[in-house]
């Protein structure tokens, strides 16, 4: 587990005057599910397509499973599986034919029917791919990516356009990949997806990695302040001093922010019980991954456009 599946140093790529990737460093351990987050145009797909061997980098060093994708493309492709964006199957081939077509390109593929079962398409094996729903086609994409029995999977926005049910199914499938010991590089702009699936995440903006960590600690999220919110009845008794000192109140909605919420909550609930106040809408929240992400992206936009 110590060997890195992906090792990237100082990666750059420009399209004309647009610097799509401006010095990316990235290390992804074998067996890890790693999510690359970022807004459209941040350099996510360009970075991933360089790792996959689709496009050539301008500079920097890249090792994927020990190969340089720009040099050993075929040797590398025997060990990776790709679920790309906008990747529809041949509509005139059945699910089984499609999987066999891809399987036949690998040296030691898994049996087609086994992979079809893994993605839950067994009852559609004889259906033409053109007649599958969007979610089923995406599962067929995953079957095609798995059939070569790769060590590393690239999933580029695998659930974009899915309904909530299909997304839950897809997540279960990706967790299954972890159990198979695969390394997964996932790109997404759904923060709940990264929170649910990823061991580690990195945020890319303007072609650079601006933060990296576990979903729970990204961007200092692990020790960020908690936020307490509740409604105070109009005309009620004044708040205890410790609470009032930190609170902002707007139309009865009290909000306060504190690193260690426990003593303050104790004071607050003691005050509420003493005055028989219900503390309507009481909530204690940590910043979500989405809050953290938006703050990081916002800071990048504010500072990076000079």
């Amino acid at each position: 587990m110590s060997e890195a599946a992906i090792e990237v140093r100082g990666l750059t790529k420009a399209y004309g005057k647009v610097q799509a990737v401006a010095g990316v460093d990235l290390t992804i351990a074998a067996g890890e599910i790693f999510a690359l987050l970022g807004p459209n145009g941040a350099g996510k797909t360009t970075t991933v397509e360089i790792l996959e061997g689709y496009i050539k980098r301008d500079s920097g060093s890249v090792r994927v499973l020990g190969h340089d994708p720009a040099k050993n493309a075929i040797a590398l492709k025997r060990r990776i599986g790709i679920v790309a964006q906008e990747n529809s199957p041949d509509p005139f081939l059945t699910v089984r034919e499609m999987v066999r077509m891809i399987a036949g390109t690998y040296p030691a593929p898994r049996p087609a029917d086994e992979v079809i079962e893994l993605v839950g398409l067994t009852d559609k094996a004889r259906t033409r791919a053109g007649r599958l729903s969007g979610g089923q086609q995406r599962r067929l994409d995953v079957a095609c990516a798995l059939v070569g029995d790769p060590d590393l999977l690239f999933l580029d926005e695998p659930t974009t356009g899915f309904d909530p049910d299909a997304r839950l199914e897809a997540w279960a499938m990706v967790r299954g990949l972890r159990d198979l010991g695969k390394t997964v590089l996932l790109t997404t702009h759904y923060m709940d997806e990264a929170q649910q699936l990823a061991d580690r995440v990195a945020v890319i903006a303007s072609g650079r990695i601006i933060a990296e960590g576990t979903p729970d600690t990204l961007g200092g999220r692990g020790h960020a302040a908690s936020r307490i919110r509740f409604r105070r009845p109009t005309g009620g008794p004044p708040l205890p001093d410790t609470v009032a000192a930190r609170a902002t109140e707007q139309e009865g909605q009290v909000t306060l922010s504190i690193d260690d919420p426990v003593p303050l909550l104790n004071a607050l609930t003691g005050w509420a019980i003493a005055h028989s106040i219900a503390l309507e809408g009481l909530e204690v929240t940590r910043p979500s991954l989405e809050d953290t992400y938006l703050a990081l992206i916002g800071a990048d936009r504010a500072g990076g456009t000079a």
Partner: peptide
Amino acid sequence: FDRDMGRLKRIRGTPTA
């Protein structure tokens, strides 16, 4: 059509020469 629909790209993502 194969290019627009990502089918050529999929083939190119496999070990096919």
